[in-house]
Computed example of a mutant assay.
Amino acid sequence: MAMTSRSITAIHRAHRDDIADLVTRRPVPAPGLEQVDPFLFLNHHGPQVYRPGNNGLPFGPHPHRGFETVTFILSGTLAHHDTGGHQSVIAAGGVQWMTAGSGLIHAEVSPSEFKRDGGPLEILQLWVNLPSRLKMTPPRYTGVQADGIPAIAIGDGLGTLNLVSGEHDGQAGPIPSLTGVFMATVQLAPGAKVDLPAPAGRAVLLYVVSGRITIGAREVPEWHLATLDDGADTVSVSAAEDTVLLFGHADPIGEPVVAHGPFVMNTREEIGQAIRDYQAGLFNGTGPLLDVGT
């Protein structure tokens, strides 16, 4: 273990805010925590079990501009389609990373098989801001199944870091980030002690999906997000039970954030332009949304 580690500055409980019959918890934004710049928003859907003959996820076609969405499928399946012509069905353990940039309309729904058969579902969706110079970048999308994500042993074999973007232990995540975001999920067994990378000057996103961890003398239980100081290059984490973390770090952007529904820009004028562009059909990309098993 490192001699020095970042310390907790605050612990934020995720707020329960269900969407239709979808169990949803939101740790950021939260009271006293507008963002963990550049991480804007995190929804934790589930865990829950859907009955056969269900309606599936409620995220039909909707627009985005000015940021990126990163979706982690922990259990269940997720179908994506967008007006950039991208489509996929991602299964448990996989990730989809969409750069909305200048504008896309997308849908994230349940495949027909899931709606027919039901089953367990747990999904995390993270919004990552883009700096002003990249807000109008061309949209793109990458979907990666579990077997395309390096699973790196940590903590003397008691932990696994599933590397989505960035580099760790000589390996690189499959999804390149426009802004150098490091992103991973971390699985810890009871007794695990790990030093996670947290380079000085970078904002750290640390959310306990399940289980609980200890950092220093403070415990962070499941469904809580910890914010950290900038006093070291690592964060030392201990787990007393099976635990899953969402863990990432990135350079803060430090620019004004003006959000309006699905648009995140720097000024109100840019929000107005986004609404006008969407209404004018400029987010329609290569054509209508493709049907992906819905």
Rank of each mutant, 00 (worst) to 15 (best):
L178M: 03
V244M: 14
A10E: 12
T286A: 14
G261Y: 02
S210T: 14
L104P: 00
E108H: 05
V292Q: 12
L22A: 05
G32P: 09
D229N: 14
F39N: 07
H81R: 15
S238Q: 15
F41Q: 09
D117M: 11
I90N: 01
G281F: 10
N54W: 08
Y278L: 09
Q96W: 03
M183C: 08
L282R: 15
L245C: 02
I149T: 11
I8L: 12
L205K: 07
Q273M: 07
G254M: 04
P61V: 06
P131N: 06
G170N: 09
Y50D: 10
I123Q: 09
A232Y: 02
V109C: 02
G118Y: 11
T234A: 08
P111N: 10
T142N: 12
V89Q: 13
I215P: 03
I215Q: 05
P174E: 06
P190V: 09
L289W: 05
A2D: 11
E241Q: 14
A2H: 10
P27G: 08
E255A: 07
I105T: 14
A92P: 07
N43H: 15
S112H: 11
D230V: 08
L290D: 12
L245N: 01
W223E: 13
D156C: 00
P29F: 06
R16A: 13
L42D: 11
I123V: 14
H106Q: 10
P176T: 03
V28F: 15
L22I: 14
V95K: 03
A2S: 14
G118E: 08
Y50C: 05
A107W: 02
V181R: 06
D82T: 00
L57Y: 02
M136H: 14
Q48M: 15
V28D: 08
I271L: 10
G173A: 10
L245D: 00
L134H: 09
M1R: 12
A151K: 14
F41G: 08
G155D: 10
V164M: 05
S165P: 04
G119E: 05
P38L: 06
P38N: 05
A153P: 08
W127C: 03
Q187I: 00
L40G: 08
M3L: 15
D82Y: 00
L126V: 03
V95A: 08
T234I: 11
L22K: 05
L289Q: 07
A189L: 14
S7H: 15
G60V: 07
T243D: 05
G118C: 11
D230H: 10
V70G: 00
A217L: 14
D251Q: 15
G103F: 06
V186S: 01
M183K: 01
M1P: 13
A91M: 05
Q96I: 00
A151T: 10
F67W: 04
H15I: 15
T234P: 01
Q145F: 01
V70K: 00
E34T: 14
V109D: 00
G53T: 07
H12S: 08
E269I: 07
N162D: 09
T9S: 11
F59K: 02
